[in-house]
C-alpha cells in the first residue's frame, strides 16, 4: 500500500470544503426564505413596542446589509458559533451539545451492530453453498430495507416490550432501554449493507486470485474472510456517507418511537415551533458530518485501491 499522491488528496479535501460551503449557504438562504418577520418570531407573545423592536434589531444585527449578515454568519460558523435559539434564547451550540450524547451513543451502537450483522450475513450467504439460506436472507433484506424504520421499532415494542415485558417501553437512562432502539436502527442498515457486501464477495469469488488462493490449499473460510471479503469492502466504504445520513435521520424518528431524549426531540421541537437557528444548525451539522465522513471514505478508497489515484 503506497501513499496516494498529495494532489489527489488535496483535490478531494477541496471538493469537500466546497460542498460544505454550498450546504451552509443553502441553509442560510433557507433562513431568509422562511416566511414571517424574524423580529415577530423573536417577540413571540411578548410585549411589542417600537422601542423593543428597535432593541431586537440592534441586538441581532438585523439592520445590516444582507451580504454582511451572510458573511458574518459564515465567519461565526467557521468558529463554531451556531447562533442563538429563538425559542430558548440560548446558544444553539449549548442546546445541541446537551442532547448530543444520547443520539451519538445510539448511532454508534446501531452502526456497529448493523455493520457486524451485514458482514456476518454476507460471508455466510455468499457463493452457492447454501441456496436456501441465501434466498431466505435476500428476502429478509428486501423486507428490511422496504419497511419504515419506525414500523420495525413498533413491532419490536409490541412483541418484546408489551407482550413479553423483556425491555422497557420508553426512557433513555439504562442500558436495557438502548437495546430495542439500537436493533431498530441497525436492521435496515444491515439489510442494505449485506446486499452490497454479498454482491462484492460474489464477484470476488469469480476472480482468478480466489482460484489461486484455493489452489494453495486454503480453507474456504480463509478464502472468504481474508481474500474475497477484503475485495468486497471497497464498494461498502463508499456507502459510509449514506450510512451516517441514515443514522442521523433515522435517530430522529426512532427516538420519537422509544421516547428517548436526544437530537431528535430537539430537532422536532425546533421544526414545529419554527426555531430556525436550531433547525439550521442540526441540518448544517449533519451535512458537515456527511462531508467529513465521505471525504475520509474517499481517502480510504485511495489508499485501498491505487487505480483510483489516476484521473
Amino acid at each position: 500500500m503506497g501513499r496516494p499522491p498529495l494532489r489527489s488528496v488535496l483535490r478531494r479535501v477541496a471538493a469537500g470544503v466546497v460542498v460544505l460551503w454550498v450546504a451552509a449557504t443553502t441553509a442560510y438562504l433557507a433562513l431568509l426564505a422562511a416566511p414571517g418577520d424574524t423580529v415577530d418570531t423573536l417577540i413571540g407573545d411578548g410585549v411589542d413596542t417600537p422601542q423593543i423592536r428597535a432593541d431586537i434589531i440592534a441586538e441581532w444585527g438585523l439592520d445590516r446589509p444582507a451580504v454582511v449578515q451572510y458573511l458574518d454568519y459564515l465567519w461565526r460558523l467557521v468558529h463554531g458559533d451556531l447562533g442563538r435559539s429563538y425559542l430558548l434564547q440560548r446558544p444553539v451550540a449549548e442546546v445541541i451539545g446537551e442532547q448530543l450524547a444520547p443520539t451519538l451513543i445510539l448511532s454508534v451502537a446501531a452502526a456497529t451492530l448493523g455493520v457486524l450483522l451485514a458482514l456476518i450475513i454476507a460471508v455466510v450467504t455468499a457463493g452457492d453453498r447454501r441456496p436456501w439460506l441465501r434466498r431466505l436472507s435476500s428476502g429478509t433484506e428486501l423486507l428490511l430495507v422496504s419497511t419504515p424504520s419506525f414500523l420495525i421499532g413498533l413491532v419490536l415494542l409490541s412483541v418484546l416490550s408489551f407482550r413479553f415485558g423483556l425491555f422497557p417501553v420508553a426512557g433513555g437512562a439504562d442500558l436495557r432501554a438502548l437495546v430495542l432502539p439500537t436493533i431498530t436502527l441497525a436492521l435496515p442498515i444491515a439489510g442494505l449493507l449485506a446486499q452490497v457486501l454479498r454482491d462484492g464477495v460474489d464477484r470476488a469469488l469469480d476472480e482468478p486470485f480466489v482460484l489461486t488462493a484455493r489452489s494453495r490449499g486454503l480453507t474456504e473460510r480463509v478464502v472468504l474472510a481474508r481474500h474475497a471479503l477484503r475485495h468486497a469492502l471497497l464498494p461498502a466504504v463508499t456507502l459510509a456517507g449514506w450510512l451516517f445520513g441514515t443514522l442521523l435521520g433515522g435517530a430522529v424518528i426512532i427516538e420519537q418511537v422509544f421516547g428517548r431524549p436526544g437530537l431528535g426531540q430537539v430537532t422536532l421541537n425546533a421544526v414545529t415551533s419554527k426555531d430556525m437557528p436550531v433547525v439550521l444548525a442540526v441540518v448544517t451539522l449533519s451535512a458537515a458530518v456527511y462531508v467529513v465522513v465521505n471525504t475520509a471514505a474517499d481517502l480510504v478508497s485511495l489508499v485501498i485501491d491505487p487505480r483510483l489515484r489516476r484521473s
Partner: peptide, 23 residues
C-alpha cells in the same frame, strides 16, 4: 453539480424537515 452535491450531503429526512419547517 456542486449545488446538487451539497443537496445530497444533507440526510434526506432532515433536509425534508428543514423545508417543512419553512413552509
Amino acid at each position: 453539480s456542486r449545488t446538487l452535491d451539497a443537496l445530497s450531503a444533507f440526510p434526506t429526512l432532515l433536509l425534508a424537515m428543514l423545508f417543512i419547517a419553512i413552509t
